[in-house]
Nucleic acid binder design. Structure first.
Length: 219
DNA sequence: CCCCAGGCGTCCA
DNA sequence: TGGACGCATGGG
């Protein structure tokens, strides 16, 4: 079985097991950007609390958020954890966002150039940048996260210590650049990880991926 | 009490 | 380049 067929097979199994996930769990591209920063190494339930604090205050827009002090912002996003760091990250992102010209300007930028620009923002790393590209802007960029790496490595498709670029290349080089499919695929990895793919111990016997027997490690 | 969550920057070899 | 560490709340 080719690597491409293997990846498609995984996608189909996850989709059959869990159904469409309907990501991103936010209403607007702006909310995706803020959520992507807030969810860094943090449970989504905590991010929801932080975002609802901002909405309740009526400050969930670039100008209002930039208009308050970093300490005020930090207090509002406290439930999301790392609140001092994330307050600075949000401010740095929003400064960039305004300077760049907002979503209208971003739409006009080439994906690779936009990705580089996002990565130049302090606090925006590969996963956060790619989440914005895919889920806020609909670019065909595959998002790699801890769940993705864990699932793939536990099924011996990648090495446990494979780096971000390597894992992303596995998808980019073996699947058509379909943003809708990348969207659903990554969300399904998260869905899988939340219940079925523990860090250690035996593979779950009810794993939708089964044992995927006989596949040599790809990477 | 423990462990973990949809990372990232810094420091140091 | 890459491994260790700090950042922090809330849920199981």
């Amino acid at each position: 079985m080719s690597t491409a067929d293997l990846l498609v097979s995984i996608y189909e199994r996850l989709l059959r097991a869990f159904g469409p996930q309907g990501w991103w769990p936010g209403e607007t591209p702006f909310e995706v950007c803020i959520g992507a920063i807030l969810t860094q190494n943090t449970a989504w339930s905590n991010v929801e609390k932080a975002i609802s604090n901002l909405k309740a205050r009526g400050v969930f827009d670039p100008d209002s958020l930039l208009g308050m002090s970093q300490a005020e912002l930090a207090a509002l996003i406290r439930p999301a954890g790392y609140f001092n760091q994330k307050a600075r990250k949000i401010r740095d992102f929003l400064s960039w966002f305004v300077k760049t010209g907002g979503f209208e300007a971003m739409e006009g930028m080439e994906t690779s150039a936009l990705r580089k620009s996002l990565l130049s923002i302090r606090g925006i790393g590969p996963e956060t940048a790619d989440s914005i590209l895919l889920y806020a802007l609909g670019r065909p960029i595959f998002v790699v996260d801890a769940y993705t790496v864990r699932a793939l490595s536990r099924h011996e498709i990648i090495a446990p210590d494979a780096d971000y670029r390597e894992v992303q290349a596995l998808f980019h080089e073996n699947l058509p650049p379909d943003a809708r499919m990348f969207n659903e695929f990554h969300a399904l990895f998260v869905r899988l990880g939340k219940t079925n793919c523990r860090k250690t111990g035996p593979l779950c016997d009810d794993c939708p991926l089964g044992t995927l027997p006989g596949y040599p490690p790809v990477v």
